[in-house]
Computed example of a mutant assay.
Amino acid sequence: MSLTLGLAGCVGIGPNKTYVLTTTSFNYDPSYRPYMVKVNGYEVGGGYGSATMRSAVILGPQIITWGEDNSTRKHKAINVVHLSKEELKNKHYLSVHFYPDDRVEITTSNDIPDPTKKGIDWENKLK
Protein backbone atom coordinates (compact mmCIF):
# COMPACT_ATOMS: atom_id res chain seq x y z
CA MET A 1 0.00 0.00 0.00
CA SER A 2 2.76 2.52 0.90
CA LEU A 3 4.56 1.79 -2.38
CA THR A 4 1.36 2.60 -4.28
CA LEU A 5 0.93 5.93 -2.45
CA GLY A 6 4.59 6.80 -3.00
CA LEU A 7 4.24 6.20 -6.73
CA ALA A 8 1.06 8.28 -6.83
CA GLY A 9 3.06 11.36 -5.73
CA CYS A 10 5.69 10.73 -8.40
CA VAL A 11 3.20 10.54 -11.25
CA GLY A 12 1.39 13.70 -10.28
CA ILE A 13 -1.69 12.54 -8.46
CA GLY A 14 -2.50 12.81 -4.79
CA PRO A 15 -1.24 15.35 -2.24
CA ASN A 16 2.35 15.53 -3.58
CA LYS A 17 1.53 16.59 -7.11
CA THR A 18 4.33 18.50 -8.78
CA TYR A 19 3.57 21.47 -11.03
CA VAL A 20 6.15 22.92 -13.40
CA LEU A 21 5.78 26.67 -13.80
CA THR A 22 7.85 29.56 -15.08
CA THR A 23 9.27 31.12 -11.93
CA THR A 24 10.80 34.44 -10.99
CA SER A 25 11.44 36.47 -7.85
CA PHE A 26 11.22 40.06 -6.71
CA ASN A 27 13.45 41.53 -3.98
CA TYR A 28 12.35 44.84 -2.47
CA ASP A 29 15.46 45.51 -0.37
CA PRO A 30 17.69 47.86 -2.43
CA SER A 31 20.81 47.06 -0.34
CA TYR A 32 21.49 43.75 -2.13
CA ARG A 33 20.54 41.44 -5.00
CA PRO A 34 19.44 37.93 -4.07
CA TYR A 35 20.99 34.82 -5.58
CA MET A 36 20.35 31.07 -5.36
CA VAL A 37 16.68 31.62 -4.60
CA LYS A 38 15.18 28.26 -3.70
CA VAL A 39 11.67 27.06 -2.99
CA ASN A 40 11.73 23.67 -1.23
CA GLY A 41 15.23 23.14 -2.59
CA TYR A 42 14.36 23.94 -6.23
CA GLU A 43 16.00 27.03 -7.72
CA VAL A 44 13.71 29.70 -9.15
CA GLY A 45 14.34 32.68 -11.43
CA GLY A 46 15.14 36.17 -10.18
CA GLY A 47 16.14 39.63 -11.23
CA TYR A 48 13.04 41.59 -10.22
CA GLY A 49 11.00 39.54 -12.63
CA SER A 50 13.43 39.86 -15.55
CA ALA A 51 14.99 36.39 -15.20
CA THR A 52 12.79 33.34 -15.35
CA MET A 53 13.24 29.61 -15.37
CA ARG A 54 11.08 26.51 -15.32
CA SER A 55 10.87 25.10 -11.80
CA ALA A 56 9.13 22.26 -10.01
CA VAL A 57 6.62 23.36 -7.36
CA ILE A 58 4.80 21.05 -4.98
CA LEU A 59 1.62 21.60 -2.99
CA GLY A 60 1.74 22.47 0.69
CA PRO A 61 4.28 24.42 2.75
CA GLN A 62 7.01 26.25 0.86
CA ILE A 63 10.41 26.70 2.52
CA ILE A 64 12.14 29.64 0.82
CA THR A 65 15.85 30.51 1.08
CA TRP A 66 18.21 32.92 -0.68
CA GLY A 67 21.62 34.59 -0.41
CA GLU A 68 22.94 38.12 -0.84
CA ASP A 69 25.26 39.07 -3.68
CA ASN A 70 27.36 41.46 -1.57
CA SER A 71 27.84 39.33 1.56
CA THR A 72 27.84 35.75 2.80
CA ARG A 73 24.51 36.24 4.55
CA LYS A 74 21.91 33.56 3.90
CA HIS A 75 18.20 34.20 4.38
CA LYS A 76 15.34 31.87 5.22
CA ALA A 77 11.81 33.21 5.10
CA ILE A 78 10.39 33.74 8.58
CA ASN A 79 6.92 32.81 7.37
CA VAL A 80 5.85 29.67 5.56
CA VAL A 81 3.61 30.04 2.54
CA HIS A 82 1.22 27.17 1.79
CA LEU A 83 0.24 26.55 -1.83
CA SER A 84 -3.00 24.83 -2.70
CA LYS A 85 -4.05 23.01 -5.83
CA GLU A 86 -6.43 25.87 -6.67
CA GLU A 87 -3.56 28.39 -6.59
CA LEU A 88 -1.42 26.37 -9.01
CA LYS A 89 -3.93 24.67 -11.28
CA ASN A 90 -3.79 26.06 -14.85
CA LYS A 91 -1.29 28.79 -13.87
CA HIS A 92 1.81 29.56 -15.92
CA TYR A 93 3.89 31.78 -13.59
CA LEU A 94 4.92 31.68 -9.95
CA SER A 95 6.64 34.67 -8.31
CA VAL A 96 8.40 34.78 -4.97
CA HIS A 97 8.41 38.24 -3.37
CA PHE A 98 11.07 38.96 -0.67
CA TYR A 99 10.38 41.76 1.77
CA PRO A 100 13.13 43.46 3.83
CA ASP A 101 11.84 41.88 7.06
CA ASP A 102 12.53 38.39 5.57
CA ARG A 103 8.85 37.67 5.04
CA VAL A 104 7.86 36.30 1.65
CA GLU A 105 4.76 36.14 -0.48
CA ILE A 106 4.06 33.91 -3.46
CA THR A 107 1.82 34.99 -6.31
CA THR A 108 0.68 32.96 -9.30
CA SER A 109 -0.62 34.21 -12.62
CA ASN A 110 -1.18 33.42 -16.27
CA ASP A 111 0.71 36.50 -17.45
CA ILE A 112 4.19 37.83 -16.78
CA PRO A 113 4.17 38.76 -13.07
CA ASP A 114 4.45 42.26 -11.66
CA PRO A 115 5.86 43.59 -8.39
CA THR A 116 3.38 43.74 -5.52
CA LYS A 117 2.07 47.05 -4.14
CA LYS A 118 3.38 46.01 -0.72
CA GLY A 119 6.85 45.49 -2.21
CA ILE A 120 6.89 48.80 -4.05
CA ASP A 121 5.85 50.57 -0.82
CA TRP A 122 8.73 48.87 1.05
CA GLU A 123 11.19 49.78 -1.69
CA ASN A 124 10.14 53.44 -1.79
CA LYS A 125 10.41 53.68 2.00
CA LEU A 126 13.99 52.31 1.95
CA LYS A 127 15.33 54.47 -0.91
Rank of each mutant, 00 (worst) to 15 (best):
V44P: 08
H75V: 00
G47M: 10
T22E: 13
Y35A: 10
E123N: 00
Y48H: 14
K127C: 07
I106G: 01
I13L: 06
T18E: 12
A51E: 12
L126S: 06
T22D: 00
A56P: 07
S95Q: 01
R54S: 14
I120S: 03
K117W: 09
D114P: 03
E86L: 12
P100L: 01
A56G: 13
Y93Q: 10
V96K: 00
V104W: 02
A8F: 11
Y48M: 15
M36R: 10
S109G: 15
T4M: 10
T22A: 04
T107R: 10
H92K: 15
P30F: 01
Y93H: 05
Y99A: 07
T24D: 05
N70Q: 12
A56L: 09
S2E: 11
G47V: 12
V57R: 06
D69C: 09
V11R: 05
T116I: 00
R103G: 02
L7K: 14
G12W: 03
G119C: 03
T22I: 14
D29Y: 05
G49P: 07
K17M: 02
I78E: 11
M53S: 06
K91C: 09
G49E: 01
W66D: 10
E123F: 15
R73H: 11
S71C: 10
S25A: 12
T108K: 00
L83Q: 08
L5E: 14
E105C: 06
K118S: 12
K117D: 14
V39H: 00
K118F: 01
V81W: 09
L3W: 03
L21E: 01
I106N: 06
L94K: 09
S31F: 10
Y35K: 15
D121P: 01
T23M: 05
T52V: 15
S95W: 06
G67W: 08
E87A: 15
L7Q: 13
I106H: 08
P115Q: 09
G45Y: 07
K125D: 08
Y42C: 12
T4H: 09
M53F: 04
S2W: 02
S25F: 01
N70S: 07
N16S: 11
V80H: 12
Q62I: 08
N16G: 10
Q62K: 05
D102K: 12
V81G: 11
K38G: 04
K74H: 13
C10M: 14
T116Y: 04
I58L: 00
S71M: 09
A77E: 07
I112H: 15
S95I: 07
D111K: 02
K125F: 00
P34N: 14
K38I: 01
A8W: 11
T108P: 04
S50V: 10
E86Q: 15
R54V: 07
A77R: 00
S55D: 05
D69P: 00
K117P: 11
K117I: 13
E86N: 13
E105P: 09
P61M: 04
I78D: 06
T4A: 12
N90W: 08
T24K: 07
Y19I: 06
H97Y: 11
E123C: 01
